[in-house]
């Protein structure tokens, strides 16, 4: 039994579509949720910030694969609720996981901006919103670009964990081909798919970093 190069490519491209879908939706949703988590963990209300600390500890301290399984199986097994569609369950778990990581990056970025910038904004009459959006935000974005690039690349690769609940992303597609046709080169070929996606993302982030190089933050 054999499979042509074109067929392998088509099957992997099909999986890559799912991978990209999971990645894009997860990334887009993780950013605002990360901002919200960051805001909550910086809250002056000690109860809220403590709850956030515990939540961050749990999410960071357990494997993403486990979280995907929990989101997919637990509602049905424990509460007899209908399971979420597989891809949705994977996205939900990835969004929760990555928004926590992103929130920590945002928090570090926010706290790295000198207090003097905020104070200067205050004595110059800027409102709190203006201070954040006109003074701090761009400086924060500049500071968080390198860790955000890393996390985004990790996110692309972590979409492969969705295969644990049988989401047909590119790794599962490759695994099926290897298992069925006993050909190893498919694994290296799959690596090229990831390298291309990661390469594009790296270039995009580098471009943004370069654009922000006009000032020293």
């Amino acid at each position: 039994m054999s499979i042509s190069f074109a067929d392998v490519t088509l099957k992997l491209l099909d999986g890559l579509g799912t991978t990209c879908l999971i990645f894009i939706i997860s990334w887009v949703l993780s950013i605002p949720l990360g901002v919200l988590f960051c805001r909550l963990s910086l809250s002056k209300n000690k109860i809220i910030s403590k709850i956030m600390q515990v939540f961050i500890w749990v999410i960071r301290g357990t494997p993403l694969m486990l979280q995907i399984m929990v989101v997919f199986y637990v509602p049905g097994l424990l509460f007899n609720w209908p399971s979420l569609p597989r891809i949705v369950a994977a996205i939900v778990a990835i969004v929760i996981n990555y928004s926590v990581y992103f929130s920590e990056i945002f928090r570090a970025g926010y706290q790295s901006i000198s207090k003097g910038q905020k104070e200067a904004g205050f004595v110059l009459g800027l409102s709190r919103i203006e201070i954040f959006f006109k003074v701090q935000l761009l400086q924060i974005i500049k500071k968080i670009m390198p860790p955000m690039t890393n996390e985004t690349i990790s996110l692309v690769k972590d979409t492969a964990l969705a295969r644990i609940i049988a989401v047909n992303e590119v790794m599962l597609a490759a695994d099926k081909i290897v298992g069925t046709y006993a050909i190893v080169w498919v694994l290296f070929y799959t690596a090229i798919f990831y390298l291309v996606v990661v390469g594009i993302i790296s270039l995009l982030f580098k471009g943004v970093e370069k654009k922000l190089n006009y000032f020293e933050g």
Partner: peptide, 19 residues
């Protein structure tokens, strides 16, 4: 802030906005 605007402060480290 409205009261603070009566005073103008030039900070030790100037605190110009870098961007």
């Amino acid at each position: 802030q409205a009261q603070a605007m009566n005073f103008g402060l030039v900070f030790q480290s100037f605190n110009l906005f870098p961007q």
